[in-house]
Nucleic acid binder design. Sequence first.
RNA 1: GACCCCAUCGUCUAGCCCGGUUAGGACUCAGGCCUUUCGAGCCUGUAGCGCCGGUUCAAAUCCGGCUGGGGUCGCCA
Length: 429
Amino acid sequence: MVKTRFAPSPTGFLHLGGARTCLFSWLYARKSKGKFILRIEDTDRLRSKKEYLEEILESLSWLGIDWDEIFYQSQRLSIYREYAQKLVEEGKAYYREGAVFFKYQFDEVEIDDLIRGKVTFRELPKQEEVIIKSDGTPTYNFACTVDDALMGITHVIRGEDHLSNTPKQILMYKALGVFPPRFAHIPMILSQSGGKMSKREGATSIREYRAGGYLPQAVVNYLLLLGWSPGGNREIISLEEAIQTFELKGVNKNPSTFSQDKFDWLNSQYIKLKPIDELTTLVKEFLEEKKFLPQKVTLDYLRKVVALFKERISKLGDLMDWGYFCFYDDFSYSPDTQDILKRKLSKEVEVLIERLSQIEDFTKENIEKEFRQTAHFLRLKAKDLVHPTRIALTGRKIGPGLFETMEVLGKEKVIERLKRLCHWWEERN
RNA sequence: GACCCCAUCGUCUAGCCCGGUUAGGACUCAGGCCUUUCGAGCCUGUAGCGCCGGUUCAAAUCCGGCUGGGGUCGCCA
């Protein structure tokens, strides 16, 4: 039976690369109806933090990844010492300077990687390596090998940065008398400027994307697209579908560059796809978390706002920026509106206010009808009245459809804000 | 520097294994349409097989070299 694992060390938050590696490993296990285990590599006492561990588990769950078992290396220290001792007794390792060293003996080591094919190492940078540190804890390569062997891992699916560790581990498997598992090395994700992803160039951790208002389905989908293709020119694919079609052989060998633009686009697609009620719930949780929502906002009002923006935002966080006017009155007119506002229309807007206040049922249909008639009456083109009205209501030149916006804001707010624009014009003279 | 991996539009990729395609799709970008705006939607377009050889009637596809990019060289993981 197939058994794969993800082995994060809790020395930092779960980042995109780790999440993708985990995803592929998980996908392979699920597709094969096998087991997927989580192994926390927390042998580095100084750098391992509980908060990181919690965040990693939380992010994985958020992405929709589950696990059948979880192990902590810090609880298995005696096991590693036991096997190291065994190697010493067999003359394959020795004590020195309080540590246990393993001696590499080989001609060449060949790996038959499931993604890259045959990879042959004829040389290693070292002749020997510490396997148990002088403080009694194991080093990475040893703990990893012992655990993968003991836990019965059949497929080690991990990042390409581990490719050069593989020959060492294979040599350790041999020394331990264990048949090595299959290996599959996933290419790295490069930052937009090439090289490793770093915080310098923006968000790297899953939690940051979550905080920015990305949907887990979109994150998973984007990660899937980086290095793998479902084929048939398809791009939108769910985790469930991916389980059906995922193939390790289909994974690309070359590192791929992360694209924020495409990621945002994909997220916007998922937002469009979400049913309005579901999206509203997500938005509510999101904005409450950010402490952005005023107390008085009702779920019903929020649903209307979400409907207004659903088709034009790429992440939930956009709502705090583009949708500010829906929740607060204290916005100012953005600088680029001056070319429109320089044309003073206070008289006309006053007429508009008068007409709008006559509307009993303030729906977008009624508003539009009245609005156009007013413009006609004032001998203005509709857009000459539309633009300043939008600025009065939202502070911006760009936004959702004006009449829908007016309906959402309600008659009172609309009139209040139109009056505010008139005052603004007066003050400017 | 040593060892290892990789190479299709600016980016993500399909095609490569089993040579013969107008080299397909997506993001971005540009232009147009819609029209009350737009960062939304619709349509169109620009743009690619890194280079040099070899094999072959024929090479993005097979082989070699070069160049370029990436990874690893801790008593970190």
